[in-house]
Design a protein around this nucleic acid. Structure first.
Length: 473
RNA sequence: GCCUCAAUAGCUCAGUUGGUUAGAGCGACGGACUGUUAAUCCGCAGGUCCCAGGUUCGAAUCCUGGUUGAGGCGCCA
């Protein structure tokens, strides 16, 4: 690389294409060649991307460059380059500006381009999962990553703007009954020489924490403790479930944002969830329109309109009882029979939001017997103040509830469900010392990103997916 | 965990009723083209037909087992 490059300002591709860079300015860009087109008359067009923006910058390399025949003609997809050149109005159709190169330095060539896994062609998502370390070099995954970033940023921004404190709830927990599925065990014991107690069982007193410990399935219970002092709080981090789920919408490691609000009921809760999701949708439209247009054209037709609707339209809302009634009168044959008291299955949820309301739908007030112990009992004595938000094409993206803040009611419910209150004494304490009605929910980050982008399989909206048998990268 | 389907070139796929030397597109490579946009056109190379058995004169094709992947269901976010 030439010495004088150090004095030339480096711009990201996004800066070049979205701000008014003055014509004839000499700039430096650093990135990877996504595509190269040659004219043997002595001109090559390099589409260079650095990940900052969906659209690449076009670099025009002429055969007067000293390394034109020795290096530039040999460039293949994803060679890394440092380009110094002059910004000019483009003569081509698809971009406003381009760069006439003074120098193109190839920093790293691609070995064996004939077998390079992410060659210059379209690939299936299934194949790309097999090359998880390289798949971000596609339009699909890089766009997903940019949108995912915006979604996370929007969530933090919305909650901070509305007075929420971000609480870092623990990843490792001793609470083995959070009620959300199988847990991964955390241990520092030597698995080949497990300590045993007198009954011949594993002696977890010898383990790192002195008792059994696990990866968290939800930060909710810890978060409630902070809610009942800080009023508006949220946790946002990875959660872990050891369920052997084999679907397009489950991961063993996924990210969840869980707000919790004090002095609030289920309707406050639903309003917050809806407003938050709408804010996220608006910001994605604002910051990632090029990415969304790509999804709309190549991944899922109509996803742009769906996102615009998500950003502007009210969600539908109906009670569980109403939902059951609509399902019973739908004239559709369901594989799982419908009656009051059943848990809604995927086909029921899909019918409700895809056929009946045709939009994002909040279902509230579920039967108590199909919901978690901490959900607040309604006055009817048979339903709880629970809510699910259903998204067309995905199903449940949010689950939440008002929490049972009445000590006696909570204890009674735990006994009914044969739960030991011993480990959760601290959770019960919260109902004894200044308890207030409070509510919260969890949004599955990946499900939200999947809904926004139209990318069908949840494994493609997280950088390195973790699922049963899937941990190669 | 249950059910269904699939596996053929670097990738995406075709391959008829079990029958000679397994095909195409894309990618890669070589050539043509004075500005391309998933460039276009011409040419060339590229195969353990997932693995192990079995049936058969003969298996990419049929059978059994396994491996890997996908979709649906359940669990949920």
């Amino acid at each position: 690389m030439k010495e004088n490059i150090k004095n030339i300002p480096t711009y990201s591709v996004k800066q070049l294409l979205t701000t008014n860079i003055e014509i004839d300015k000499v700039v430096c860009i650093k990135g990877w060649v996504r595509n190269k087109r040659d004219s043997k008359a002595g001109i090559s067009f390099l589409s260079v991307t650095d990940g900052s923006y969906f659209i690449p910058i076009q670099v025009v390399a002429e055969n007067t460059l000293s390394n034109y025949t020795t290096e530039i003609l040999s460039i293949t997809k994803d060679c890394s380059v440092v380009v110094v050149g002059r910004v000019v109005k483009s003569l081509g159709k698809n971009q406003s500006i381009e760069i006439i190169a003074n120098t193109v330095d190839v920093i790293g060539f691609v070995e064996n381009p004939d077998t390079y896994p992410v060659s210059q062609k379209r690939h299936t998502v299934e194949y790309l999962r097999e090359v998880g370390h390289l798949r971000v070099r596609t339009n699909l995954i890089s766009s997903v990553v940019r949108v995912r970033n915006t979604v996370c940023f929007a969530i933090h921004e919305y909650l901070n703007n509305n007075g929420f404190y971000w609480i870092h709830t623990p990843i490792i927990t001793a609470t083995d009954a959070e009620g959300a599925g199988e847990m991964f065990r955390v241990t520092s014991l030597d698995l080949n020489h497990l300590p045993k107690n007198q009954e011949g069982q594993i002696n977890f007193k010898k383990d790192f924490f002195g008792k059994e410990s696990f990866l968290t399935v939800s930060g909710q219970l810890n978060l409630e403790a902070y809610c009942l002092a800080m009023s508006k709080v949220y946790t946002f981090g990875p959660t872990f479930r050891a369920e052997n789920s084999n679907t397009t919408r489950h991961l063993a490691e996924f990210w969840m944002v869980e707000p919790e609000i004090a002095f609030a009921n289920l309707m406050d809760n639903a309003a917050l969830a809806e407003d938050l999701i709408r804010y996220v949708a608006k910001m994605v439209l604002d910051k990632n329109l090029e990415d969304i247009k790509f999804f709309d054209e190549f991944v899922s037709n109509g996803v742009l309109l769906r996102l615009e609707n998500l950003a502007t339209q009210k969600f539908a809302m109906l009670t569980y009882t109403e939902a059951i009634d609509k399902l019973l009168h739908s004239n559709k044959q369901f594989a799982n029979p419908v009656s009051w008291g059943i848990d809604l299955s995927s086909e029921h949820e899909r019918w409700l939001c895809e056929e009946y309301t045709k939009t994002t739908t909040i279902v509230v007030d579920y039967p108590k017997d199909i919901k978690a112990f901490y959900m607040r009992l309604n006055d009817d004595g048979k339903t709880v103040s629970a809510m699910d938000i259903l998204a067309p094409g995905i199903g449940e993206i949010v689950g939440g509830s008002a929490r049972e803040e009445r000590y006696d009611m909570l204890l009674k419910r735990m006994h009914e469900m044969n739960m030991s209150s011993e480990h959760l004494y601290w959770y019960l304490d919260l109902r004894k010392f200044g308890s207030v009605p409070h509510a919260g929910f969890g949004i599955g980050l990946e499900r939200l990103v999947s809904y926004i982008t139209g990318v069908q399989n949840i494994r493609d909206v997280i950088p390195f997916p973790r699922a049963s048998g899937l941990i190669n990268f």
